[in-house]
Design a protein around this nucleic acid. Sequence first.
DNA 1: CGTTTTTGACCCGCGC
DNA 2: GCGCGGGTCAAAAACG
Length: 225
Amino acid sequence: MHMALSSRSSFAAADVLLPAAMAYRQPCSGGGGGPATSSYFGSRPAAPFFPFGTAAQLDVFECLSDEGGAVPAPPAAVPGAFATPPPPLPLMPAERVVPDAAAGYSSHARSAAAAAAGEGPPRRTDRIAFRVRSDDEEVLDDGYKWRKYGKKSVKNSPNPRNYYRCSTEGCSVKKRVERDKDDQRYVVTMYEGVHNHVSPGTIYYATQDAASGRFFVAGMHQPGH
DNA sequence: CGTTTTTGACCCGCGC
DNA sequence: GCGCGGGTCAAAAACG
């Protein structure tokens, strides 16, 4: 069963959401105040992926980082991103969600990843988490094809956590999805790793300007296709 | 028929 | 050393 790849008309609002996603992501890596560590995009200018989808559902968009901790969604102007997103958000204090998620994941994900990869070294993986409002849809369509490989109930949450892996061969990007334990209306999605390929769904893609580090929507299809 | 989901077992690191 | 919590594997079932 495939997710809502086509069951939902997510394209209509995508032009709005894409900028939004990107805009939020930039501050995401910086950690809202600390030295811009650029944990995610900054260090990996490659394969883009967009953790969002089902446009209509995206109500609140928060970004979490495994090192900075909470990164409250930047309310207004985001330098660099083209269009300032129109999100009427911030009703949710990010501090509540992040510590839990971030702490838990950073410690365990590391060991687990290391074990799985068979390499002990501090192989830092790009990890990014989003918390979006989605009442009925759990798995947001981000254009990639995911294969579920596990499901676990977590200690401090009544909701199970689902584990997905990118089904594209050679791509080891993982993603875990769970409903917010406090707000069942929200879904926390965590991505780990970077896709080594473009979206099979050929949704949107973007390019990053090496000099400025900014992102630009380059089109609707893969380059050269 | 190929791919994905399901689900329990297994494994591993960490804290006590 | 042991138990707990969390992440992954793998076999079988389900699905399109």
